[in-house]
Amino acid sequence: MKRTFTEALKNRRTYYSISNQSPISDGEIEQIVNFAVTHVPSSFNSQSTRVVLLLGDSHQKLWGIVKDTLKKIVPAQAFVKTEEKINHSFAAGYGTVLFFEDQTVVKGLQDAFPSYQENFPGWSLQTSAMHQLAVWTMLEDAGFGASLQHYNPLIDAEVRRTWNLPETWNLIAQMPFGTPAGDPGAKEFQPLESRVKIFK
């Protein structure tokens, strides 16, 4: 049964223990991504977000790229734990969603509206963040567990080369997902009094 929007937001959590099983079809996963890209808002209706959905071998290939990249820069002793985390928390999943922002769109807006040019990169990141939250929440609602990772910019060039993506696509985040294989960690909340101000 579908949750309400508030229930879905409340239940969206970070899952580091996931399996390579899926409660829904690949077509339904594609529908989630397509829905978010179609309907999530963007500044000036720029529609600057680009999304790549990796399933099966492509999902595994991504996390192989991450490990190969990190192995070159992480000391051997530390890499053992790094590799273990990637293998059990991210590569173990069913798929990964990659979030990009097309810098051609951002640059076009900067040229078209020079008085706002310094704002467009930040607004672009806000657009991406909204897409990330929407996809994450809908995946959770479908029965997946997910997390948000940031191995960019270390992996950017190899990711673009591997999947033949435009140079203007700037990688923002990676979202591995799969059926939860464990509970999420405890979540603490800071007092609302220090985070929200209301004036009447």
Rank of each mutant, 00 (worst) to 15 (best):
G93S: 02
A134V: 12
P153L: 12
K67G: 03
N152C: 12
F177Y: 10
E118C: 01
N152Q: 15
P180F: 14
S147G: 08
I73N: 04
G95S: 08
D111E: 13
D183Q: 15
A92F: 08
M175N: 11
I155H: 02
S58V: 03
R160Y: 04
F144I: 11
G182Y: 04
I172E: 10
D57I: 05
A112T: 01
Q60M: 02
W63C: 04
E167N: 09
E140W: 02
P153N: 13
V74F: 02
A181W: 00
G56V: 11
P180V: 09
W163K: 06
N170Q: 15
K107T: 00
W123P: 09
Y94A: 11
W136T: 14
P176F: 00
D183W: 08
K61S: 03
V52K: 14
Q174A: 14
K61Y: 03
A157F: 01
L98H: 10
L98R: 14
G64F: 02
I65H: 05
S58C: 06
Y94D: 06
L165G: 01
A92T: 07
E188H: 13
R50L: 09
L98I: 13
W169L: 06
Q126C: 07
A92N: 10
G122I: 07
P180Y: 14
S124I: 00
L154C: 09
V97N: 12
V80Y: 01
Q132A: 05
I155R: 01
A76S: 04
G108Y: 01
Y94F: 12
A142G: 10
H88S: 13
Q77W: 00
A186G: 10
H59G: 02
E84N: 05
Q132V: 13
A186V: 13
W169N: 02
P166S: 07
H131S: 05
F100Q: 03
T179P: 09
A134S: 15
E188W: 00
P166C: 05
V74Q: 01
Q149M: 15
P176K: 11
T82Q: 03
S124H: 04
V52D: 05
G185D: 09
A134L: 03
A91G: 03
Y151H: 15
V159P: 09
P184E: 09
K71E: 08
V74L: 00
A129D: 09
V52C: 14
H150E: 11
Q77L: 03
W163M: 06
